[in-house]
């Protein structure tokens, strides 16, 4: 049997406060009929209510807001329609100004999305299955080497992919239809990293340069400040775009966790 231990690191754009971080990340343990789930999303900077949208998507996918969707186009479409309704009918919007109402109605929001479920962790063939819309990326790493990258995006292709989940109903079916799916086998000691675009783009470059150094560093991150120090340094060096960044690390091991770490 494989156990999972996950941690989420994040940082807002340089110059913005934590409250302005517009990505989302969520995880949930196995529930009846399905394995543990993990998701990250990246809300559009120029959207309205993007942080809420990204957060509702990831929370919904892992099952924190009603029944989570199966990893299939029809199920995802039905589920995303429900999330859209909740986003539009948010009671907080009763206090919106004219400008805010105008932006919600005319622009709305949009988020890239990456969701992952681990399956058969107690069985003979543990594996991951994932769905992606846009350029948030899953890296499956074993012994400091990438076993799989999903979706496969070259460094220069980040930021140009138009796929994601919109808040507007009109475009939903077409965009969900562009969802990509993948899966892979898991082994004891494997690591899964789910990253939003700016961090994922840097990872793809750093992996070409020195994979052992990269994956040792990421596997060893043990405090939010260590992550933020890494991000600050790469931004200052011009290696990482100044965008909200999120990295979820999921460690798979035969031995269960023996202690809980709380960072202060």
């Amino acid at each position: 049997m494989l156990h999972t231990r996950q941690v989420v690191f994040y940082a807002p754009k340089r110059g913005n406060a934590d409250a302005e971080w517009e990505d989302g990340a969520a995880a949930a343990p196995a529930q009846a009929g399905r394995g543990p789930r993990f998701a990250v999303a990246d809300g559009a900077t120029q959207g309205f209510g993007s942080a809420r949208w990204a957060q509702q998507l990831v929370a919904g996918f892992v099952g924190d807001q009603g029944a989570p969707p199966d990893l299939a186009v029809d199920a995802l479409h039905h589920w995303a329609s429900d999330v859209q309704e909740r986003w539009r009918d948010d009671p907080r919007l009763s206090g919106a100004t004219d400008l805010q109402r105008l932006k919600q109605a005319t622009v709305g929001s949009f988020a890239t999305f990456l969701g992952c479920e681990l399956r058969d962790l107690t069985g003979p063939r543990p594996r991951w299955a994932a769905v992606a819309l846009g350029d948030a990326v899953l890296f499956h790493v074993r012994e400091h080497r990438v076993v799989a990258q999903f979706p496969r995006i070259a460094p220069e292709e980040f930021g140009s992919n138009p796929d994601g989940v919109p808040t507007g109903a009109a475009a939903l079916a077409e965009l969900i239809g562009r969802a990509r799916f993948a899966d892979g086998d898991l082994a004891d000691g494997d690591l899964l990293y789910l990253a939003t675009d700016a961090f994922a783009q840097w990872v793809t470059v750093a992996d070409r340069r020195d994979p052992r150094a990269l994956w040792s560093t990421l596997a060893g991150l043990d405090h939010p400040e260590a992550f933020r120090g890494l991000v600050r340094g790469r931004r200052a060096a011009g290696e990482m775009v100044n965008d909200d960044v999120t990295l979820m690390r999921v460690r798979l091991e035969r031995s269960p966790a023996t202690h809980l770490v709380v960072c202060l």
């Binding site: 302005e20 517009e22 120029q46 959207g47 309205f48 209510g49 993007s50 942080a51 809420r52 948010d90 907080r92 919007l93 206090g95 919106a96 100004t97 400008l99 805010q100 105008l102 932006k103 005319t106 622009v107």
Partner: peptide
């Protein structure tokens, strides 16, 4: 420009 900088209720 005002709309672009409008990001959330409240």
């Amino acid at each position: 420009m005002c709309i672009k900088a409008t990001t959330e209720v409240n």
